[in-house]
């Protein structure tokens, strides 16, 4: 079994949030929770740091380094940086550059087809197995909160993201 997993990659679900990105691996739970920040060297476009390390650089970078959030309002603002970030997270989870995991990614509800497509393509370019699956955030939040979404009964979920408001 490990050999198959090694080649195909482990199934992962990614909550690509404006503030934090969370990665869930099938059978293990949430394995990664890091700020959605990438620092790149603009001279050659390489990623210097991703996640926690990159967040510390925000507002403190010299001219040739740019640390920013590739997502704005839940949608991709910088495609290349987003792809770099996803690639970094996939590699971190698998400790291998060849993994092709099956991937589910969250998008906010009510985004346009173009924005959804961008998320899907960023995931596929970053190494997710095609097709990358998309789930709407309110739906994911409802399932994650233990609501019975498949039943013929109304459930209302209000999901306010974009940075946590209080430390737990």
């Amino acid at each position: 079994m490990p050999s198959i997993l090694g080649v195909m990659g482990r199934d992962m679900a990614v909550d690509l949030g404006t503030a934090n990105t969370l990665v869930y691996v099938r059978g293990e739970g949430i394995v990664l929770n890091e700020p959605s920040v990438v620092a790149i060297d603009i001279r050659d476009g390489s990623a210097l740091a991703v996640g926690t390390d990159a967040k510390r650089m925000i507002g403190r970078t010299p001219d040739h380094i740019r640390a920013s959030r590739p997502l704005r309002d839940g949608v991709i603002a910088d495609f290349d940086m987003c792809e770099q970030m996803l690639r970094h997270f996939i590699e971190k989870v698998h400790q291998s550059r060849l993994a092709k995991p099956r991937m589910v990614i969250c998008v906010p509800s009510g985004i346009t087809g173009v924005e959804q497509r961008a998320v899907q393509e960023a995931a596929e370019f970053a190494g997710a197995r095609k097709p990358a699956y998309i789930i709407e955030e309110p739906m994911a939040a409802a399932i994650g909160s233990g609501m019975r979404v498949q039943e013929p009964s109304g459930n209302m979920i209000v999901d306010i993201g974009g940075g946590q408001l209080k430390w737990q």
């Binding site: 099938r26 739970g29 497509r117 097709p131 990358a132 994650g144 909160s145 993201g161």
Partner: peptide, 27 residues
């Protein structure tokens, strides 16, 4: 963690919750 747990759950029971997912062929 609700969003991550929920999307994770959709992976764990992929077949029963497949209906809530979208993939590129549907878009």
């Amino acid at each position: 963690h609700a969003v991550a747990l929920g999307s994770g759950k959709s992976l764990e029971s992929f077949d029963s919750l497949k209906g809530v997912l979208f993939s590129s062929n549907q878009v």
